[in-house]
């Protein structure tokens, strides 16, 4: 197997799914954001977005914190250190496979 094929085979499947890739790519440029921002940016419905966020949280890539802004509930989201590292590795492998 050549290097490019190996790079494709080694892509992180948790991140590689298009919806989750959008989420992780957006979060990589941020310290944190709230749920509403991701709904606005990704234009996903809330159910789909929640299932992707749960999957990322289960993988240890995402940290969710439930807070309140006045009386309105707010969910803060941030990538964990391992989430950032996984995304950097994913980018490197993607670049290698597209070379």
């Amino acid at each position: 197997m050549n290097g490019q094929l190996r790079a494709i085979a080694e892509l992180d499947r948790v991140i590689h799914e298009p919806g989750r890739l959008m989420i992780v790519a957006l979060l990589s440029g941020l310290e944190e954001c709230d749920y509403r921002y991701l709904v606005h940016e990704t234009e996903m419905n809330k159910g789909t977005l929640s299932s992707h966020l749960t999957r990322l949280e289960e993988a240890g890539y995402l940290q969710m914190e439930k807070t309140f802004r006045g009386k309105v509930p707010r969910t803060l989201l941030r990538l964990t250190a391992s989430g950032r590292q996984a995304f950097e590795d994913y980018r490197a492998k993607l670049k290698e496979s597209l070379r």
Partner: peptide
Amino acid sequence: TYPRTGYIAPRRAL
């Protein structure tokens, strides 16, 4: 802005 389209905190050491 934040109540309509969400809150963000940009990463400092990008």
